[in-house]
Design a binder for these strands. Sequence first.
DNA 1: CACCCTAGAGTGAACGTTCACATGGTGTCA
DNA 2: TGACACCATGTGAACGTTCACTCTAGGGTG
Lengths: 339, 339
Amino acid sequence: MKERPSGIDRPTIIDVAEVADVSRQTVSRVLSDHPRVAPATRRRVKEAIEKLGYRPNRMARALVTRTSLTFGFAAVDMRNSHFGDTCSGMQAAAREHGYYLVVTELDFNDDRGMGTLETLLTLGVDGVAFFPSFLEDTEIELFAATSGCPVVMIGRESKIPNVVSIAIDETRAADLIVDHLVDTRKRHIGILMNEMFPDIVHERFVALQRAVANRTEVARSPVVADHPKISHGRDAATRLLQKHPDVDAVVGFNDTMAMGALLACHDLGLRVPEDVAVVGYDGSPFGVITNPPLTTIVQDSIGMADAAFKALLSCVEEGTPSEGEVLLWQPELLVRGST
Amino acid sequence: MKERPSGIDRPTIIDVAEVADVSRQTVSRVLSDHPRVAPATRRRVKEAIEKLGYRPNRMARALVTRTSLTFGFAAVDMRNSHFGDTCSGMQAAAREHGYYLVVTELDFNDDRGMGTLETLLTLGVDGVAFFPSFLEDTEIELFAATSGCPVVMIGRESKIPNVVSIAIDETRAADLIVDHLVDTRKRHIGILMNEMFPDIVHERFVALQRAVANRTEVARSPVVADHPKISHGRDAATRLLQKHPDVDAVVGFNDTMAMGALLACHDLGLRVPEDVAVVGYDGSPFGVITNPPLTTIVQDSIGMADAAFKALLSCVEEGTPSEGEVLLWQPELLVRGST
DNA sequence: CACCCTAGAGTGAACGTTCACATGGTGTCA
DNA sequence: TGACACCATGTGAACGTTCACTCTAGGGTG
């Protein structure tokens, strides 16, 4: 039991072996529930483990088994409801299967997030799930090729070799929103874009523009971009509504921005939904407490998280599909008072 | 370059050494910026690293250095604003100092969270920060004693040997709330307790009861407990207000429950704040979008997270204080429309 | 010119595990 | 009674690093 820098020492498998008067391999067998251990020996070993407060060192184990039972998860901002839910969902799925999750927030300044992903790999994870955010598909392809482990990308629908991608059907989501708005006699849809998550945003934007062009006589929606915070959404929506007084519906790229839009309408004396309808994305639980409650696109974050974990697990067990698999999820429109 | 179970292999320091035609120790020296490496050699090694896409294996390194540069963080529910902010804050502080954070959600079913903490240790973290939630002080003391690494407890003010605890001054928070309510002519304060986080809840409850007894003629506030969700807060507040019609102010133990209380008032046709005032804890960003906006106790989650990280770091560098240190933070009352 | 010093590089051991294989003892059956 | 199977356990090597040494060649000093 040598000293650690921090002070206190921890017993090793050899300490346990000495106390139980067996070899380290026998202790190892007890630890992994190997059948060929005599009951009496097993009991002795367990007592020694208990007595010493022994905890196996998973890093040493990982070194020889080449498997850490740990997956990495990375997203830009864990406080964002969708990312947080996905993280929680992966946690739950991981724990259920005896896996652990190392969570890290992507740092734009660290090579646009690539550095963060790289360091995740050095931690010895068996797989990585992440929201690609600032990265190009070619960068992700290179990362996956050299990572030596399965890679799952969440939130962007791209067929990248060696990468499983999980995303919602943005076309469907856009159609749901625009159909609903047009059905409620709205014609001039303004867009409140999120400048922080270009990955999700791009597809969402294209899908919305196409849906708008299909269903209204307006060729191109007015757009404003800002940070995904309530206050920024409020400012952005104010700019949008002042510059384009004919806008009668605002779509925020997440619920936080849409909530900002609600406040902006209030500030400007516009009635929601009579003068301006507001729609968000994410299905945040706080959508019920706004005034009026927020209509929003609900995406099954937990289900997607579960799928992400399952994808990593099956890649570990059966190998990564070299083709680039895409799992598409169907969104739903939760209609509340804001439309 | 042997095969991993998942398929692809990763180059090791020996592969790099071979390509650069040096020994592994020289590569190691380049990696750690050791001064005594000839410039030409250094360049050759760096080229080899680049060419092979080599990433050092931090587990192997941790095994020999007995330091993983990784801290563990655990909380019950990462989606809760206060926990999420603390997590984000620790992430940021950790990254700034070259550390990593392994995040895990505490599982009540796993020995009331102790099992989750134990497994965190097997991952080889250099320290653990956590919200103690369901654990007794004696359990935490035992855990700290046998963990072999610094332990920081967030959210409960307890002097436990070998443990640094970081919490807000609950007495002060309770005084702020009760003083403010009494100043606005409220006399019958009802409490909406959170049954999920008994650690925080107990101190908060005691502090509030004492403040109420000090400032009003009511000896004991009526209390209802439920889950920390908006819908549960709504139900609980409805029960509270129906059973105690004289209640003219409701204090929720977090913002989510307080938001539920706002909805309950709305359901019951009570005006906020004229008939019933509502106060929450946490300073959630969503407090601005409620109707009316929520008065709440703001705790400096980021500052506390920073302090938690710094505490772990200084324990690693200078040793854990055996006395049990308590860092107390001063809360502020953010007065908005709900009072 | 003998001496020592130092910069630059290499070697064996160790970290705490598990894997593959070896060993010895016991029981079974022809 | 011998051959063989099989059960329980032990041993050496390996995983990918770093640490504490050692070694070598060259240069400066007296």
